[in-house]
Design a protein around this nucleic acid. Structure first.
Lengths: 258, 258
DNA sequence: CGTTCAGTTGACCATGATCAAGAGTGGTGG
DNA sequence: CCACCACTCTTGATCATGGTCAACTGAACG
């Protein structure tokens, strides 16, 4: 049974049975549960470990002196935060739990060993590093160029596809736990305006969002509304997503290692 | 004189004489001159080389279907665009010259050799990769949270310090070739509003910007105006007594699959 | 010298912010 | 199990930042 990290890395490259075992071990080594809204690590802290998200949603954010907060990315199962520890002596952003979070804590030595022993995994980690950079670029495009409804539609498309790539969607729906305030902090809008824009998208039948559950009845339509083009996610399996609609059968259920 | 890449990488870690020679060779191997406003490589192209900026300014950008353009970063001497080639099969952004540009084109095999032979350089490349990610994060914060004058002041502070870290400042001034339209595309504003905001900053005596030359008479004041905190640049020289560079055996290998 | 591109200015407009109050919802303890 | 509390969501009224459109100025370069 594969964990989300394996699944995600296999988005890029074939892993051997041994690689997979290696990753399983990694995910099982030292796990923690973090309550909702708690910080995992703060801006300015010295990073000591990489965190692998096993269950739940988190986010990376920075705060300004006057308290304004900008969410820089959401973290879903299979995401790795943050390779910084090998190089940088201080965290340049904070990481927080949105829901209750299960994470695996991977220490420097362990990661170093894995990376020395497995070229496939090293390459795959590079891949995920470059992809997450591409995602950051797209977030700049969103806040810089897109209007409110486009930003929100775009965010929904992105997160849905990221959830799908680790098998956490069910047909056309998936968990979506961020509050409207979180969405506001991620998109550079106010929560009031997010609220109104969500109502708009709902009225147009583009999304159903209720009790932390998101449904996308017509993905191509939502993509059009958000000026969304999935190329930047560099998902290999995603090629078939390009505005043509999806294969319903592809979402494999995923059990997460604890 | 040492080239800008050497200088930039030494921002992070000590390089041996051999490392330095290696980098010199890299920069001399295959150089090109690109006229202003020309694209070096386009979104969707297959990356074949890494470009090292030797002289002049460039930018990375993405365009939307309707022609809106978002600049994602500026590239100044010593910057490396883009390690993507080892991993990703398609460019997810374009790179263009702003001024006339001198670049060194570094092919896959050459970079591969360097990286195999020199752990110091490998580590330093990782460092620059992570730092540029941190810069992308700060750009998200800017467009997401800062008002027009803050965004522009922030951008000026950042670019000045980046120029300074490769020795391209002269007292309190440096080249600053982007047009007001470029600044607009980078900050998510319109060129009209950039114009008015620049006048404002000039009126306050925070910047002098004339004929592609930027002067910052009072850096602390400009930093305050832009809510600028240099930590995210991870420049070591900004904090004198940081600890020694990590030892090379700890370096995360950069595995390059052909 | 004329052409082109960047910069500048003015009038008007729209998207999204702000402020404030009220309605659901879910979780907790009595 | 219910009542209460806190948090999230919703709504309305008003405002401001920054966008749009259009015309004009000025500098650089052949």
């Amino acid at each position: 049974m594969a964990n989300a990290l394996t699944r995600r890395l296999e988005e890029y490259t074939a892993l051997s049975a041994q690689d997979r075992a290696e990753l399983e071990a990694l995910a099982a080594l030292s796990t923690h549960t973090i309550p909702p809204r708690r910080d995992l690590i703060r801006q300015g802290d010295t990073p000591r470990s990489v965190y692998l998200i096993l269950e739940g949603w988190g986010c990376q954010y920075r705060t300004l002196a006057d308290g304004r907060r900008q969410i820089l990315d959401f973290a879903v199962p299979g995401d790795l935060c943050d390779l910084n520890l090998f190089i940088l002596d201080k965290m340049d952003h904070s990481i927080a739990a949105i829901t209750r979070l299960k994470v695996a804590e991977i220490g420097r030595e362990v990661l170093h060993r894995v990376v020395t022993n497995s070229p496939n995994i090293t390459t795959a980690l590079w891949w995920q590093e470059l992809v997450s950079k591409s995602v950051l670029r797209e977030w700049i495009v969103s806040v810089g160029q897109r209007c409110a409804s486009e930003r929100i539609a775009h965010l929904m498309c992105e997160m849905f596809l990221r959830m799908e790539s680790v098998g956490l969607t069910n047909g056309s729906s998936c968990d979506f736990p961020p509050t409207q305030q979180d969405i506001a902090d991620a998109t550079g809008l106010t929560s009031v305006h997010v609220n109104r824009t969500l109502q708009d998208l709902r009225r147009q039948g583009l999304i159903v969002l209720d009790r932390q559950r998101l449904s996308i009845p017509d993905m191509p339509a939502l993509q059009a509304a958000g000026q969304f083009n999935p190329d930047y996610l560099h998902h290999r399996r995603l090629k078939r997503h390009s505005r043509e609609g999806r294969n319903a059968s592809e979402a494999l259920p995923l059990r997460l290692t604890a």
